[in-house]
Design a protein around this nucleic acid. Sequence first.
DNA 1: ACCTGAACACCGTTCAAGT
DNA 2: ACCTGAACACCGTTCAAGT
Lengths: 214, 214
Amino acid sequence: MKARGKRTLERRVIAQKALELIDRNGLEALSMRKLGAALGVEAMALYHHFESKAELLDGVLELLVEQIERGIPENKPPLWRLRRMFENMRRIAIEHPHAFILLPTRRFRTQRALEAYERLLQTFRDAGFDAEASARYFRVLAGFVSGAGLAEIGGSRALQPDATGVILEDFSDEQEFPRVTEVVPYLRVRKLDQIFAFGLDLIFDAMKRDLRKT
Amino acid sequence: MKARGKRTLERRVIAQKALELIDRNGLEALSMRKLGAALGVEAMALYHHFESKAELLDGVLELLVEQIERGIPENKPPLWRLRRMFENMRRIAIEHPHAFILLPTRRFRTQRALEAYERLLQTFRDAGFDAEASARYFRVLAGFVSGAGLAEIGGSRALQPDATGVILEDFSDEQEFPRVTEVVPYLRVRKLDQIFAFGLDLIFDAMKRDLRKT
DNA sequence: ACCTGAACACCGTTCAAGT
DNA sequence: ACCTGAACACCGTTCAAGT
């Protein structure tokens, strides 16, 4: 499992270029052929570094997972750090709208991804939760943040690669869908920050109550 | 936009067969060619009923969206009905693990999907929320349920179509990932019901507090 | 109105061959 | 050890043709 110097470097460079292409053209548009071309190499050369496209995507996932811990000082209280980590997850959705889906759909299978997962769970423990409560709150938070991230993307930050023509605005004559129409302004991108914070508050408040109780 | 009898029927039959194939072989494995074959027809015949594969997927999405309202009596209180709708969303994740992803990732663009969305939002209004609060709680609930649904799937109910070899159980020597290891038993499929209910309680409790306040 | 069949421009991956 | 190039078995979709 130990890297042989150049190999790990290459893997990372390839994954980074893949993420770049995904950011630019969408996940569906990423192909081994195009990725090879972008790196000045034949598609098949990539199979020397990754066994399959699936493994390459695990490599891209690793890059996203690493960002969960970005810019979080060690010396802050655990609950504060946890909050920042989940806020980071949302930021990843915004910065990498086409790649974000990898985070909630692909299992963590690589060393680096599992290491980050380990540290995240350790932070729950540091906050005072036992294994069961850590599992529970992790699931609830990760669920909420994943779903919120996906909504943010569908919401309008990024276009879907294979979207069909009609969008809500074309549709809503307000006669037919009054409730949908009235809700649209409150779900604009600008408003989503507040809603996300509100949801996160809900969960963290419950966590704090829980900690005080025991 | 009005249907011409047979046409709508056909569309539905095709979408249903597509969902069946997705359930059996995964979303990635669905192709126009295979779907045609399953219906005893050439792939190109499908383009007479759907303009593209994207539109076909919108048709499959419709089938899922309809199930959100399944088995919910009109005469129950709005909050109760809302809870049931979001529980239904999770059931959809469990019953259609490979297709569920369509729900949080594809925008609602078809008549039937928007109608269901309209009724869902109307139920928030019936419960006593204004448009803004409806938008907020809808987003938080939909976010949580989507994320929880995806986690449920990754968790183990369905295999990923392009999963790579290693899974956590192979990995965790408990030396290297003690926190990950200790959390595994609490995230087993059997336990996810409780965690889901716990998360939903959190949000519905906040909704009830909110309603009492005003 | 509905379906076929050939064709185009792509895919991921295998394999044998090159350096 | 690393890369190429041809080939295989697929894709979604266009287009002209059939009934």
